[in-house]
């Protein structure tokens, strides 16, 4: 028996919008720790890892570990039927081939339940080793989204370079080139508007902008984003979900032959 009640149901709606472009089908894993997902995109270039900790739910009952295969487009269709202020409860019985999403309006005057068929998905769970990153950039998530969008109108790839001067995003295409430098800026009114660079040593990596733009679908989940970079490792683009967990995207770099 599984029963997860999330008062801030809009979080779940935003999570689905954040991952459904990248991944078509995925297993949602439920354990005492929380509600999680790990999946690669179809070309195995990017990986998304989601965690919603059990403590973040108003009610969390998960009698045994359960893995539920879902088509994310279909989950998104169901969750779009929930109001933005609705409380969402996810329910499943042991051995059942369906999951139920229950939506309650804030004043309890409307209650809806949507039952969705589960699917069998063969997915490989990857071990993500703890890594010391050469540079971690924290910046406003909206600023990062703007940079990725702007650069993708010029080129297909971005070189992200971190030095003590700041973080530079560069691209080149048929019509020309573009460079955007963001300097460390801690002296802002609100901490979420700061750009903070923790650098052990300079690092420069090349990535496909198409994937980074897909990651920015998570922007509504968090005011800030952190970008962790090391030579010869996938970049980690993390959006924290307040008090609950995170959506992390890993993107394999482009490597000179």
């Amino acid at each position: 028996m599984l029963e997860l009640r999330l008062v801030q149901g809009s979080l779940l709606k935003k999570v689905l919008e954040a991952i459904k472009e990248l991944v078509t089908d995925a297993n949602f894993d439920c354990s005492a720790t929380g509600f999680s997902l790990q999946a690669m995109d179809s070309s195995h270039v990017a990986l998304v890892a989601l965690l919603l900790r059990s403590e973040g739910f108003e009610h969390y009952r998960c009698d045994r570990n359960l893995s539920m295969g879902m088509n994310l487009g279909n989950v998104s269709k169901m969750l779009r039927c929930a109001g933005s202020d609705d409380i969402i409860t996810i329910k499943a019985d042991d051995g059942s081939d369906t999951v139920t999403f229950m939506f309650e309006s804030p004043n309890q005057d409307k209650i809806a339940d949507f039952e969705m068929k589960l699917m069998d998905i063969d997915s490989e769970h990857l071990g993500i080793p703890d890594a010391e990153y050469q540079a971690i950039v924290r910046m406003p998530s909206g600023e990062f989204a703007r940079i990725c969008k702007d650069l993708s109108s010029i080129g297909d790839t971005v070189i992200i370079s971190v030095t003590k001067e700041g973080v530079k995003f560069s691209t080149a295409g048929d019509i020309g080139t573009a460079n955007i430098v963001c300097r460390q800026n801690k002296t802002v009114d609100k901490p979420e508007e700061a750009t903070v660079i923790e650098m052990q040593e300079p690092v420069s990596l090349t990535f496909a902008l198409r994937y980074l733009n897909s990651f920015t679908k998570a922007t509504p989940l968090s005011e800030t984003v952190s970008i962790s970079l090391s030579s010869d490792l996938p970049v980690v683009v993390e959006y924290k979900i307040a008090d609950m967990g995170y959506v992390r995207y890993y993107l394999a770099p482009k490597i000179e032959e």
Binding site: S43, L47, L126, G127, A208, P234, A252, K254, E256
Partner: peptide
């Protein structure tokens, strides 16, 4: 040019 690597080059199946 640069070649796109894949995630499984870096992270192994658990």
């Amino acid at each position: 040019g640069a070649k796109q690597s894949i995630i499984t080059n870096f992270f192994k199946i658990a």
